[in-house]
Amino acid sequence: MNSLIQRAYNFNAGPSALPLEVLEKAQQELIDFRGTGMSVMELSHRSAAYEEVHNHAITLLKELLSIPDEYEVLFLQGGGSLQFSMVPMNFLKPGEQAGYIMTGSWSEKAFAEAKLFGDPYHVFSNKESQYRRIPQFEELQYNPTDAYIHLTSNNTIYGTQWSDFPNTGEVPLIADMSSDILSQPFDVSKFALIYAGAQKNLGPSGVTVAIIRKDMIEKGNANIPTMLKYSTHSKNNSLYNTPPTFGIYMLGEVLNWIKELGGINTLGERNKQKAKLIYDVIDQSNGFYVGHAEPESRSLMNITFRVNDEELEKKFLSEAKLEGFVGVNGHRSVGGCRASTYNSVPYETCKAFSEFMIHFQNTNR
């Protein structure tokens, strides 16, 4: 890559940073993909060259997450937001109940869609305290006859994250992992379905990954549009129609990068170290910076905080932008500051931001 190019300190909440090594490889292969004389964007999705890309990405994801054989990996479109509808459309019948664990805005959006198809209810909600924490397992009250339980594993707006997941027994557990999939080790077998938009931790926007247990596919509602059935995509290896081929290629290259880095265990430790750089500044600032999430619920992916004076906060965000830090404004619905430290954000970027925070505090006491 041109050495004159200055890469931004990218804390965008999504689409987010991608590994430089992946971008450079994509640049090299952009015009002639592995001797085909075509870009990967020009390949037929029925060609052997593309099929190899497609299947390699599936195989790598299964390997990195130790996905059991009774699960399938699907590549879908429409982002996590379409899954808010697709989940109840497939698995929630009129008159049936499904439990939703409410930990932020994305849980609210998923719940609103479920109301169109059945009778969802709140297993837990702490909206009144501005979603500052993840519930304890004993706080989760649900029915053994529920069609499923739904949770959001990481909350980008409020900066909270599940560090472990409940065992819901015979009730299928479904998770939106759009903003923290592959950020730390977890047990896939606790879930009946995991879905995740790729644009935060897996690759560019346009691809949605679904990891679904085969018995759930069989339970899906048959009387819905073809493209909205998980079974359609399962039967066709996610090739029923033209998939986002370039996005899947990039996803595969990000997974290659994760494997070469040492896999999910290495990545999880790296993410802890990155987040600690910034949380330590907040905790040691004597109230100059105020974190939103309660410490035991803090996200490794989205660090949310305020500067203790409104005018100073505006100055902080303005100076951060001048110093090359991109995307550190909090979500428009809550304001404040947010550093999104997704998998591909380098340690050096987080270190530079922590040093900027310390400098800003020292010069604005």
Results as ranks from 00 to 15, higher is better:
residue 169 G to H: 03
residue 169 G to S: 04
residue 170 E to T: 08
residue 174 I to G: 02
residue 175 A to M: 06
residue 175 A to C: 12
residue 176 D to I: 01
residue 182 L to K: 02
residue 185 P to W: 08
residue 185 P to E: 08
residue 185 P to G: 05
residue 187 D to G: 11
residue 190 K to L: 14
residue 195 Y to F: 15
residue 197 G to W: 08
residue 197 G to E: 07
residue 198 A to C: 13
residue 200 K to Y: 08
residue 202 L to R: 01
residue 203 G to H: 01
residue 203 G to D: 05
residue 205 S to H: 04
residue 205 S to E: 03
residue 206 G to L: 00
residue 208 T to C: 12
residue 209 V to C: 09
residue 210 A to I: 00
residue 213 R to Y: 04
residue 213 R to F: 05
residue 214 K to E: 02
residue 214 K to S: 00
residue 214 K to M: 00
residue 216 M to Y: 05
residue 216 M to W: 05
residue 216 M to P: 03
residue 218 E to W: 04
residue 219 K to T: 04
residue 220 G to P: 04
residue 220 G to I: 06
residue 222 A to D: 14
residue 225 P to A: 04
residue 226 T to Q: 14
residue 228 L to Y: 13
residue 228 L to E: 09
residue 229 K to C: 13
residue 229 K to I: 09
residue 233 H to C: 07
residue 233 H to E: 03
residue 234 S to P: 03
residue 235 K to W: 04
residue 236 N to W: 10
residue 238 S to N: 02
residue 240 Y to M: 14
residue 241 N to R: 10
residue 242 T to D: 14
residue 245 T to Q: 15
residue 245 T to Y: 14
residue 251 L to T: 15
residue 252 G to I: 13
residue 253 E to G: 06
residue 254 V to Q: 10
residue 255 L to Y: 11
residue 258 I to W: 07
residue 260 E to K: 13
residue 260 E to C: 00
residue 261 L to W: 13
residue 261 L to C: 15
residue 261 L to Q: 15
residue 263 G to I: 07
residue 263 G to E: 11
residue 265 N to S: 14
residue 265 N to T: 15
residue 266 T to L: 13
residue 266 T to A: 15
residue 267 L to D: 02
residue 267 L to K: 09
residue 268 G to H: 07
residue 269 E to T: 13
residue 269 E to K: 10
residue 271 N to R: 04
residue 273 Q to K: 15
residue 275 A to I: 13
residue 276 K to W: 07
residue 276 K to F: 06
